[in-house]
């Protein structure tokens, strides 16, 4: 059942990406703010950096990462749009 494993693989990838999404914004930028702010890198307190810059960069990278991995997954399971329906 290729379609089933395709969907399972997709869900796993989505869960992984959402975990990172949550970690950099809510984790680093809000919940762990005070803790991370003790670390200073190049003029930024780290927590503040994630809240106002870092999380946004990670979001962009995350979407492109997901899109690339899904394109590979589409090909692997033969559900690519160019491939005929089973």
């Amino acid at each position: 059942m290729s379609k089933r494993t395709y969907w399972q693989d997709n869900l796993r990838l989505v869960a992984f990406c959402l975990a990172i999404w949550f970690l950099v914004s809510f984790g680093f930028g809000i919940i762990g703010l005070d803790w991370l702010n003790q670390i200073q890198i190049g003029g930024f307190q780290l927590g503040f950096f994630f809240a106002q810059q870092g999380s946004i960069y990670v979001f962009v990278a995350l979407i492109f990462f997901y899109a690339r991995r899904m394109a590979a997954l589409d090909r692997k399971h033969g559900v690519n749009e160019e491939q005929a329906r089973e």
Partner: peptide, 24 residues
């Protein structure tokens, strides 16, 4: 100041949800 972060994260993070959960 820091409180403004809600708009920065809130109005960009939604695109991750959109790309992973709805758009395709």
């Amino acid at each position: 100041g820091y409180d403004g972060s809600v708009y920065l994260m809130g109005w960009t993070g939604g695109y991750v949800l959109l790309a992973l959960l709805l758009a395709p």
